[in-house]
């Protein structure tokens, strides 16, 4: 059962709004994002209600002072400011809890003096820029040829059954997101997966269970 009520969600949003040092009584901020319902664990009926009428929420995003300095350093590495868009998107994603909200994209565009449409165009091309929230642990299992020859499909079935999610989904507790990914460059140590940035290779079902157990703690 999906559990959180709409009230709880609004509370979460409200508190993050406040944490950002904003006055919560301010009118609706200009940055809005459309959240896929499952990202916030809506009850099934609410999912139905909100599916066609996306829940409009407001999550503020502005770069921290430290990150603004990092961005300046990135800009200096290239002859044009536009070229810094990928490194700045990485910084934005890192600051925003491993995904890019529309607000984060807009902030990226602003800081580089680019149009948001251009930045969305770039961000949407790449699989590693997450366009929706991901869990605390992003399990990225390779399903390409060398891994599949050594049982990647079995690992994937096991993981999907165990966590009750499929490609691109997040568990209700927000802990795990599972993605099937293309070749990770670990074909010689297949099957392989990445948990967030870390590689785990020569996987077996037992090894995977061990790993997951380690994460829960």
């Amino acid at each position: 059962m999906r559990s959180k009520s709409i009230l709880q969600i609004l509370k979460i949003l409200d508190s993050s709004h406040k944490r950002d040092g904003n006055d919560s009584k301010r009118p609706l901020p200009e940055f809005c994002i459309y959240l896929k319902p499952y990202a916030f664990d809506l009850t099934p009926d609410l999912t139905l209600v909100t599916y066609n009428l996306p829940l409009i929420t407001y999550i503020m995003f502005s770069f921290t002072k430290e990150n603004l300095q990092r961005i300046e350093a990135e800009k200096k590495k290239y002859p044009t400011v536009e070229s810094a868009v990928m490194p700045v998107l990485w910084i934005a994603q890192e600051q925003n809890g491993n995904w890019l909200s529309e607000a984060a994209i807009k902030a990226t565009a602003d800081v580089l003096d680019l149009s948001p449409a251009h930045v969305i165009g770039v961000a949407s091309f790449y699989t590693m820029y997450n366009k929706q929230p991901v869990g605390k642990y992003h399990l990225q299992v390779c399903s390409n040829i060398s891994c599949s020859l050594l049982g990647a499909k079995k690992l994937i079935h096991h993981l999907e059954n165990k966590l009750a999610i499929t490609h691109g989904e997040t568990t209700q507790d927000g802990l795990y997101t599972f993605s099937e990914v293309e070749c990770l460059g670990s074909c010689g140590t297949a099957p392989a997966m990445q948990i967030n940035d870390d590689y785990h290779e020569n996987l077996t079902i037992e090894k995977m269970d061990e790993l997951l157990k380690g994460l829960e703690k």
């Binding site: 290239y78 070229s83 998107l89 820029y129």
Partner: peptide, 21 residues
Amino acid sequence: HRGAGAYICGEESSLMNSLEG
């Protein structure tokens, strides 16, 4: 320069466009 998950960026002219942002 860190890529972001696109096989086509290994093709040399795609790589250049990627670097150019």
